[in-house]
């Protein structure tokens, strides 16, 4: 029985393809993600993106909501230093990131399910790499529903 269970768990892990929500920005990171597609660079189709005008508009509760709705991870494709709107965009985003991680911890969700990196408008290759790496990390963490 125990052996069967272990086998079932292994089978489950193989079939598990983590769901990732990407929060991008209309003028900077979303064009980078577009470029990855235009170049036919592959990343898992379980990655889906919502674009906003600016990383600083993201509310921590959206991240919590996504993980509660069944996303296994949230990736913030941030403006970094290139934000056209706010000079302190990177600082604001970093603060929001910390708040969100704290809120995840309070809910018993691993803060590793939230990642952030600056993605520029030509960062196609880095984006696909992040998606593969994050996917790997989340596969090791297992489905969010089991936490």
């Amino acid at each position: 029985m125990a052996v069967q269970q272990q086998a079932a768990v292994r089978e489950d892990a193989r079939a598990f393809s983590p769901r990732i929500l990407v929060l991008s920005t209309n003028n900077i990171s979303d064009p980078g993600i577009d470029l990855a597609g235009s170049a036919h660079m592959h990343y898992p189709p379980t990655v889906t993106t919502i674009a906003l005008p600016c990383t600083s508009a993201i509310m921590p509760e959206w991240i919590v909501h996504a993980l509660e709705q069944g996303f296994d991870g949230v990736f913030i494709a941030s403006d970094g230093e290139e934000c056209a709107y706010l000079r302190d965009c990177a600082e604001r985003s970093a603060q929001m990131f910390e708040t969100a991680q704290k809120e995840l911890k309070e809910r018993g969700i691993s803060p590793a399910r939230l990642q952030m990196a600056a993605i520029c408008s030509v960062c196609a290759e880095p984006f696909t790499r992040y998606m593969h790496e994050f996917s790997q990390t989340l596969t090791e963490l297992g489905p969010v529903r089991k936490e």
Partner: peptide, 11 residues
């Protein structure tokens, strides 16, 4: 297109 068909031509 850019964020779906072209990024997942293998699946």
């Amino acid at each position: 297109r850019e964020q779906c068909s072209w990024a997942h031509t293998d699946d």
